[in-house]
Computed example of a mutant assay.
Amino acid sequence: MTSPALQRSFVDARLHVVTGKGGTGKTTVAAALALALAAQGRRVLIAEVEGRQGISQTFDVPPLGDDEVRLITDPSGGELWGLSVDAKAALLEYLQTFYKLGRAGSALEKVGAIDFATTIAPGVRDVLLIGKVYEAAGRTTGNRRGQGQLAFDSVVLDAPPTGRAVRFLNVNKEVADIAKVGPIRGQADSITRMLRARSTLVHIVTLLEEMPVQETVDALREIGDAGFGLGALVVNLEREPMLDEAARKEVQTSADAALEDRVRGELVEAGIRPTGPMVRGLLSEARDHAARLDLEDELRAEIAAQDLPVLHLPRVAAGVEAGGLRVLARSLTEQGVA
């Protein structure tokens, strides 16, 4: 079912920032979102900034670099392009763009200044990484930024995990507080405006598990307080319950003897010779599963209480490599991602 709130939130969005606790599948969700947008006839860029080559692995293509590579051409006419931002290359590009260093940039690299700036100097790495995403999101076909048509209709950023997402997104505000004038201050202000604009949404990926949900709730508060626009909560890897409501209640309330007799009878009907340990083991697993379903219901209620659109993605048994990514993309489209 399509959520009106979700449709409204996606109407003006161009930059989709996808974050989540490590292990929740945020790269897969970012890829599915990008694919869903491309399937609507858009030219979409998916970018990563952590150097893990998660995008290339998800789409089963060679490792990505600083040049955008077309990953998919959709029958709708849409295109999906991929980019893996490297801080060192981004710094050299930045120095050439603003300071025309040319060969001097290569000299800095030889003496280790580039490595120092991108690996040791606090915050510089994040400034460079998000600056490259800013450039791609605002690039146009004209001679100057803002002239002509946008190169990409939508940009999906596979961002750092929620633990450092706000620091990553907010780094240019900190730069602007230090650099009072000049091109560094100007670009920092421009990037901050882009990230806080209505056209940028931060989506958080979670699982129906206690720690990811708690971290998601904390991240929502932190991201909102920092002034960034919140998009959707994505509940990933949802499993179909093996017990319906009636069976769950029966497992939790019926007497052991009655349940054991019923399970034993159903096993016999299925052509299986039941033993005592087998029957008791099945009942123990059923009770554990029922308790798990109760917990998931509580976590769903906690997610729903955050008053944001919620998207649900199933666990794909065959994996994302065997067509599962398109299954997830279709699911997002059916739920109103547009």
Rank of each mutant, 00 (worst) to 15 (best):
P62Y: 03
P63I: 06
G65H: 07
D66I: 11
E68A: 14
V69Q: 14
R70A: 09
R70E: 11
R70F: 04
L71K: 10
I72A: 05
T73C: 10
D74C: 12
P75M: 08
E79Q: 15
L80N: 08
W81V: 03
G82Q: 12
L83I: 01
L83P: 05
D86P: 13
D86W: 07
A87M: 14
K88C: 04
A90G: 02
L92T: 06
L92W: 10
Y94N: 02
Y94G: 00
L95I: 02
L95K: 04
Q96D: 15
T97D: 13
T97F: 04
T97G: 00
F98S: 00
F98T: 02
Y99C: 01
L101Y: 02
G102D: 05
R103I: 07
A104E: 04
L108N: 05
L108E: 06
E109A: 15
V111D: 03
V111F: 11
I114D: 01
D115S: 13
D115I: 08
F116D: 01
A117H: 07
A117T: 13
T118N: 09
T119C: 02
I120A: 13
A121K: 15
P122D: 03
V124M: 14
R125H: 10
L128M: 14
I130M: 09
G131Y: 09
K132G: 00
K132E: 08
V133C: 00
E135T: 12
E135R: 15
A137E: 05
T140P: 08
T140G: 08
G142H: 12
G142M: 14
G146S: 04
G146Q: 01
Q147I: 11
G148V: 02
L150F: 14
L150C: 08
A151Q: 14
F152W: 11
D153K: 04
S154P: 03
V155H: 03
V156I: 10
L157T: 07
L157A: 06
P160L: 01
P161I: 03
T162H: 05
G163K: 12
R164L: 09
R164P: 06
F168N: 08
N170M: 04
K173F: 06
V175M: 06
V175H: 02
A176V: 00
D177A: 15
I178S: 04
K180P: 01
